[in-house]
Design a protein around this nucleic acid. Sequence first.
DNA 1: AATTTCTACAACCGCTCTGAG
DNA 2: TCTCAGAGCGGTTGTAGAAAT
Length: 275
Amino acid sequence: MGRRPCCSKEEGLNRGAWTTPEDKILASYIKTHGEGKWRNLPKRAGLKRCGKSCRLRWLNYLRPGIKRGNISHEEEDLIIRLHKLLGNKWSLIAGRLPGRTDNEIKNYWNTNLSKKVKGYQPKVSTQKHLNHSEEEKLKKQQETKMVMDPRVVRTKASRFNRVFLTPQPTSNYQVNENNNEATFSESEPSKDKTVELDQVEEGDSLNLMVDLDCYFSDVLNSDLFEFGNGKDGESLPSWDQPVLCPEVWTGGHSIEPDFQSINSLLGQVESWLDE
DNA sequence: AATTTCTACAACCGCTCTGAG
DNA sequence: TCTCAGAGCGGTTGTAGAAAT
């Protein structure tokens, strides 16, 4: 037993670029019948395409409100900063850019931004007197941390009610002031554990805070989350505050999310990370 | 002008996750 | 608890058009 083979393997289906008549058929079918049931859609609509292809075409090009091309500097900056925090979570990043699709942002990143950002050097790599292997090790650690901290494995669930902690040896890097020699030490990892939101203990919350991008992505993805502009709003959580509470970030105030507020929040998160 | 190389991006593919039954 | 369909995500590929030679 297993799942049905992907429809893309079926014979007699059109492939490659979509034609205008195909677009019209798809758009008018969805207008009448709505989205969903993608597997059956091509047959019902009379299209020689696989359901997946129809879904992609609709979501990325035909859906109303899609913006194409002309990515502004503001958007570009936001993409870079969000990518720094979230890694290749294109759908999450796209979710913060109205009218933009994950596919477009992914393509834009791969063709334009990845080259720009390539010049970025992790802070510590500029430290002097590191030998090659140490430099490589450090670089790897930095890159891994930048993209995705592996200690917390996120489920795809959009609600932030459970996390799976996979502790790893803690790597410590130090430079001896006297001889400028770098040393590394690793502490033993503790056992894996799953933490329910309502069972998070004091020590757990500290671990969770380390995985900022995990939390941040959930916060960004949350319908409940709204950026705060209050007098005491926008304050980042202190180490003893309940990090899992979005209100900590918003100060309980609510405004419409916009570039300014997203940038403001990102700025604070970045400076927090730099500390 | 012809050919080659490069670039951008649309589309495909494989995998995972969720929810219904 | 298990199975499977539906849906979504992210990496990769294919290709048209632009730029370089």
